[in-house]
Design a protein around this nucleic acid. Structure first.
Lengths: 196, 196
DNA sequence: TTTTTAATGGAACACTCGTTCATTATACAG
DNA sequence: CTGTATAATGAACGAGTGTTCCATTAAAAA
């Protein structure tokens, strides 16, 4: 046949993801991407088609990575809930070195993109966030089966609650990253609000 | 003297705020603003100096408006905590008709802007969010004085907690706006997590 | 070694960006 | 009514945008 691409596709997507993650969709230009991933326009457009499509692949890659982290945390932990807690601690406190942002790339995208100007990408981000919530719901259902949570609770409602807490904490951490306070908040997710 | 400006400054800032709020800093172009506020570049630059400065005035206007809403809620309520709860309910559920976004403009800005590219605007947004948190802290201190909360709690920690909850809920509401669930979450802020 | 085929590099396109400025319009002072 | 000061206009600027195009390059197949 012919020549084969010399760059590593996943490596390129990884770099693109980091740039989009740190600067956002509108804040990232194709020139920025060209230098970050070290490819010329011809190669980028032959491989990914458009800025929008590269973003779509990037945010999917991000979601997949996050999913893997969750699996690792669950595998390392004795129970579903302690696994979930480890996952949250990883996202909000540890594991941030060299990461483009302490905020969730999906949440950043949902915050930035609009229904009028970027409907397709926004819907993709919403879909990925819903996937995560479904995964949480499964974990909580498993925790109920194991007796770690009362079975009369609503798994999908608890999953929503976890989602709200993670979104709130990661965003708040961008402004005020007091590790002690945030650690306390993570503990309190599962035991009751500090008001109680 | 001479001619006097015929447009209303606050009206213009109000319209600019709504546009920035819905489309974000990078998503809003000066052309978008020109048509939204019905002023030509000359007038805009003579009055506001730059896109950055207009954004700064807009986000300050937004923060002032939000502060006024909080005052109204407190004045309408019997106790500091019920006032705070009314405020949260207003932000997350009611009072959204015709609003550019259910999300907080300050949080959207903190999410979008970067230290490297927009340091000054980012710092301004962080400052405004800290102001809100200080106000929460004052309200909670007042609630302690009135015996509505145990006095041995840490007011500034509770204020952080409120901040996390509002950020989480408003952002989550953008994706999944189930009024019943969100109402329940607002109640639970002050009485204990659904896990408890 | 030759042919074939796709990856690559990078100039260039049409358009939009934030911003400037010479010009025109208008209201008030004299 | 005239002169003057300032607000408003909108064409235009240089730089940057996402994207296209195609000559060149390089490696696999014949």
């Amino acid at each position: 046949m012919s020549k084969v691409a010399k760059f590593n596709r996943e490596e390129v997507i990884d770099k693109a993801t980091n740039l989009y993650w740190s600067k956002g969709y509108h804040g990232t230009s194709m020139r920025n991407l060209q230098t970050a991933i070290d490819l010329r326009p011809g190669s980028i457009y032959a491989t990914f088609g458009s800025k929008d499509n590269l973003f779509k692949e990037s945010i999917n890659y991000y979601a997949a990575q996050t999913g893997e982290l969750l699996e690792i945390c669950l595998a390392q932990s004795a129970t579903p809930l302690t696994g979930l807690k480890l996952f949250i601690r990883n996202l909000v406190i540890d594991n941030l070195d060299g990461k483009p942002s302490c905020m969730c790339m999906i949440v950043k995208s949902i915050s930035e993109l609009t229904d009028t100007d970027n409907k397709e990408l926004l819907d993709e981000a919403k879909r990925l966030l819903a996937n995560v919530e479904n995964k949480f719901s499964e974990i909580i259902t498993e925790a109920m089966a194991q007796g770690e949570i009362d079975s009369d609770k609503d798994a999908s409602e608890l999953a929503s609650y976890i989602q709200v807490q993670i979104i709130g904490l990661r965003t708040y951490a961008r402004v005020n990253n007091n590790e002690e306070t945030i650690n306390k908040f993570i503990d309190e997710i599962f035991i009751g609000s500090p008001f109680y």
